[in-house]
């Protein structure tokens, strides 16, 4: 079975984003970029499936600008076998990404698509679910545990009330949550090896997908600032302030 892992290049999770002065978006120039943390977990899980004999090949794919090749190389250095870049700049909206991924799925015929539950830039949490709808495949979102065999994909999902266990008929789509695994670091020899692994380039045109946006961004602004308040030095002082000043207890 092949496993397809769609990934995304985003601003590094440790960087504090800055809103552009003209309110057109968030500053991306000269900002450290990295693989979306949830995507790293998906890549790791796919590699583990291959290592445990449940998958033959791990293919990573991304939709984005040419620089996204770096992110694909990172996934190859972790252990993915080959990569596909669908070049689109700026990166399209989730629905268009899902349509592009559907076209890639139809070319590659994976038995499982593993992807992050959300990208930490747009925080949309849509792409995996949309891909499942377009393909008519089963879906397990927010996975914290995964078991794969020929007959079924068993997923433990992190839901608001706790955990939920479901069983999916393959081929399936699984979106991963934080506690599924801890991604490995790429070793230096593997980083060198990754440079020679195959990386195919595609475009929305060659895949026959219209990626025109459906949303118009009117403005992007800073959230209202929250100022630091007063320091207290004892429990009694804190309780008094909560009772008499803030009046919340």
């Amino acid at each position: 079975m092949k496993v397809l892992v769609p990934i995304k290049r985003v601003i590094d999770a440790n960087i504090k984003v800055r809103v552009k002065a003209d309110e057109s978006g968030v500053e991306l120039n000269n900002v450290k970029m990295a693989m979306n943390p949830f995507c790293e977990i998906a890549v790791e899980e796919a590699i583990r499936l291959r290592e445990s004999g449940h998958a033959e090949e791990v293919i990573v794919v991304t939709v984005g600008p040419a620089q996204s090749q770096e992110t694909l190389r990172t996934a190859l250095a972790m252990g993915a076998d080959r990569a596909i870049l669908v070049e689109a700049d700026p990166a399209p909206e989730p629905l268009a990404v899902a349509k592009l991924l559907k076209a890639v799925v139809e070319k590659e015929t994976p038995g499982l698509v593993l992807l992050g539950k959300q990208a930490i830039d747009g925080d949309n949490n849509q792409t995996g679910q949309m891909l499942s709808g377009l393909l008519g495949w089963s879906i397990g979102t927010f996975a914290s545990h995964l078991e794969v065999d020929d007959a079924a994909v068993r997923v433990t999902r992190e839901v608001d009330g706790g955990l939920e266990n479901i069983e999916l008929v393959p081929p399936a789509i699984v979106t991963v949550d934080l506690r599924l695994n801890e991604p490995r670091y790429a070793s230096l020899p593997n980083i060198m090896k990754a440079k020679k692994k195959p990386l195919d380039m595609l475009t929305p045109e060659t895949l026959g997908v219209d990626v025109s946006p459906r949303l118009e961004t009117i403005r992007v602004i800073d959230p209202p600032a929250r100022a630091a308040g007063a320091r207290v030095t004892s429990a009694q002082e804190l309780v008094d302030k909560l009772r008499n000043e803030a009046k919340v207890i």
Binding site: L95, D123, N125, Q126, M130, G133, L134, T141
Partner: peptide, 22 residues
């Protein structure tokens, strides 16, 4: 919620709509 996040994007794809999240 996890319920709505799980469900609505699948509906959006069937309707060919770009959902607006959260």
């Amino acid at each position: 919620t996890t319920y709505g996040k799980n469900l609505l994007p699948r509906v959006a794809a069937l309707l060919d709509v770009q959902q607006i999240s959260d």
